[in-house]
Design a protein around this nucleic acid. Structure first.
Lengths: 164, 164
DNA sequence: ATTTTTGCAAACCATTTGCAGCTGG
DNA sequence: CCAGCTGCAAATGGTTTGCAAAAAT
């Protein structure tokens, strides 16, 4: 349901797991086995995903984690700044927010593909606008919706031939 | 739950009701009394709202519309291009997408207030990025999340006094 | 007359929660 | 040891749907 343009990972000092452990420690909470399973699985690949996919991915393996724990852990990972929520449809999707450069999205409303992009102007605009309105900006989301090249071609496949 | 910066309405030739009627006619569907009640109530004011608020607003009056019809009509109004969906929380919020200039949003994560703003750069970026990726852009969403001035002050109310 | 729409109640589905037992530090 | 965690099953809450009666053209 999601795909990435090739943005290269950033260099980070701590592993996601280590960062999570620190976050939990501060709050007097524990890095348990299910939580370790989840964070490792999640940061093993740079994909957008949702709660259901995690449950499905792990159900087969010997590292099954209950649905409730998946939801509870996802919430923690967002609070810890490791994941970001993406509300494209009725279900909540997540993406890495650590060890990965900040970026925005193109969303194809036809095939649901998500492509990431970078544009430096956006952060500037965010600062300018926040300042104007006295907001203390903490994040932003810029999403362009439209039709991706593949679906565009599929829609009108003989456009070029018509001109012959 | 939502508030607007003062963006002035655009001039439009058809009333929202008229535009809805045209949309329905094309699809061989009908502009019924409940639908008329809803579109009038919705375009009576420029507020963000959700399904529940509509039901509540109308329950009291003599123009009660059932919850199912509210949901069904909201879907139609989005399809007709009269409303736009805004997924800020678990419930879907709506705003006018007709007779109102395009704009973007600041969202206070503390009090949930939504402020609209305009920035011409954004559309340019949208075109540039779409072109780069071969997307046919149909829309965009730019949302800045953060803390609004009011909540900022409430959070650290004695910041100024500390300096005395 | 025929097709679409409505309202109700029931169904749905993603997410949350209460709780008894398990676990990590 | 003991606060915090897990898994289960049940609850929640927004949204959708099946259906019989009502309305629109």
């Amino acid at each position: 349901m999601a795909e990435h343009a090739p943005l290269s990972p950033m260099l980070v000092t701590d592993s996601p797991e280590e960062k999570f452990r620190e976050f939990l420690e501060i709050r007097g909470e524990k890095l348990t086995e299910p939580r370790r399973i989840l964070i490792r699985h999640i940061f093993d690949s740079h994909k957008h995903f949702d709660a259901d996919e995690l449950v499905a991915d792990l159900r087969a393996s010997a590292r099954k984690v209950s649905r409730s724990t998946v939801y509870r852990t996802l919430r923690l990972l967002v609070e810890a700044g490791l994941l970001r929520e993406l509300r494209l449809t009725n279900r909540t999707a997540y993406e890495h927010d650590y060890g990965y450069p900040s970026h925005d999205h193109l969303h194809c409303t036809e095939c649901n593909r998500v492509v990431e992009f970078n544009n430096d102007e956006i952060r500037k605009i965010r600062e300018t606008v926040s300042l104007e309105h006295g907001f203390r900006a903490e994040g932003h989301r810029f999403m362009i919706t439209g039709i991706c090249p593949t679906c565009s071609r599929a829609r009108s496949p003989r456009r070029r031939l018509d001109l012959i």
